[in-house]
């Protein structure tokens, strides 16, 4: 019942009638399920077993971009964080900070996108909270999601699990999300058919774990790109990683954008990709399972885990390397700061 208020107002955050209306007309109607419908202060859940528990804040400009929006992103972000731990995502909690003046229609589109994505990932939003802040105090809407998932018996991928000899498998092309966002930035606009890869990965992970429960480690290379994900895993696992740069799948338009703006696909954000560390003997079956899933059709083995002591003559804290055209190795470092378009 928001007949006379087309935009979100401060009163919507007051906890009074308008606040209730906002929750009911926008959130609980779209995201309805037996647990959320009670609108209790907390969701009561019955779960048996080992839980994965995570939280992720989402800010993106613009709110809607080719291939996704902040609603879809906020669900996939948390689902994927659970999935790469081997967990089956179950429930999501939602915190929304809305800037005064945001059109209600926009908020409904975002919520509808969350509903569709949650359905796709087979998770339920079971509790939530909204706040409204004054114009200028937020950029449209900020969404925080927290989630829990159940880790099946016998499965234990973790960031610390990579072992020398593991194959490094990437589930698909790099940088689609980063470049899709870039294409909307003022002054950089360009046309391409490129869409963000923003997608929930839990069904892909399920197929991978069905192929081998010995998947040692997984990570979704979001901010900081593959370079950050590989450096994090290598450091946590105490190993070194060698990748073959020529085997990295990158779409032509992403490569073109990188040439144009001086960016590196290894550093661009992804929102629907994962990198997995799998014992060499199981790599073939895991790769085949990934390739038979729509989100892993372009999966490729991009490198291998090596003993850091054998680290190709490099000493010091460096753990990730790429082989160059001339046969040498170069260091892939942890990225620093944001990637800015440059002309030199």
């Amino acid at each position: 019942m928001t007949h006379d208020t087309e935009t979100v107002q401060m009163a919507h955050g007051s906890g009074g009638r308008l606040g209730r209306e906002l929750v009911e007309s926008v959130f609980s109607s779209a995201l309805a399920n037996n647990i959320l419908n009670r609108l209790d202060d907390a969701a009561c859940l019955e779960v048996q077993g080992r839980l994965a528990f995570t939280i992720d804040g989402h800010v993106v400009s613009p709110l809607f971009f080719p291939g996704g929006d902040i609603g879809r992103l906020s669900v996939t972000g948390t689902v994927n964080d659970l999935a790469v731990m081997g967990a089956t995502p179950l429930y999501i909690a939602l915190g929304v900070v809305i800037e005064e003046g945001l059109p209600l229609h926009t908020l409904k589109l975002i919520t509808e996108s969350m509903r569709a994505t949650a359905g796709e990932a087979k998770v339920e939003v079971v509790t939530g909270d909204t706040k409204v802040v004054e114009r200028g105090a937020a950029d449209g809407v900020f969404i925080t999601t927290s989630g829990i998932g159940l880790i099946p018996e016998g499965v234990s991928p973790s960031g610390r699990g990579a072992r020398p000899g593991d194959a490094v498998i990437l589930s698909g092309t790099l940088g689609d999300h980063g470049v899709a966002i870039l294409s909307c930035r003022q002054g950089l606009e360009f046309d391409s058919m490129l869409k963000s890869d923003c997608a929930p990965l839990n069904s892909l992970v399920r197929e991978m774990l069905a192929a081998s429960v010995r998947v040692h480690a997984m990570r979704d290379p979001t901010r900081g790109g593959l370079a950050a994900a590989l450096n994090e895993i290598a450091a946590a696992s105490g190993v070194a990683i060698e990748i073959e740069e020529e085997t990295l799948p990158v779409k032509p338009s992403v490569r073109a954008a990188c040439e144009l703006f001086g960016l590196d696909p290894l550093l661009l954000a992804n929102e629907g990709k994962l990198v997995a560390f799998v014992p060499e003997d199981d790599a073939g079956s895991v790769l085949a399972a990934m390739r038979s899933h729509p989100l892993g059709a372009e999966a490729a083995i991009i490198g291998r885990v090596v003993d850091p002591a054998a680290g190709a003559g490099f000493s010091g804290p460096f753990r990730v390397f790429a082989r160059t055209v001339l046969g040498g190795l170069r260091i892939i470092r942890m990225p620093v700061g944001e990637q800015l378009p440059r002309i030199c």
């Binding site: 360009f190 046309d191 391409s192 338009s253 490569r255 073109a256 040439e259 144009l260 440059r342 002309i343």
Partner: peptide, 28 residues
């Protein structure tokens, strides 16, 4: 210095053009 990338001219309109690089189109 100076990044420059090979681009194909798709159409021109006075001093403006649309160029294409690897399927990506941009004003130039």
């Amino acid at each position: 210095m100076c990044l420059a990338v090979p681009a194909k001219i798709i159409e021109t309109d006075g001093q403006q053009a649309i160029v294409e690089i690897g399927g990506l189109r941009k004003q130039a």
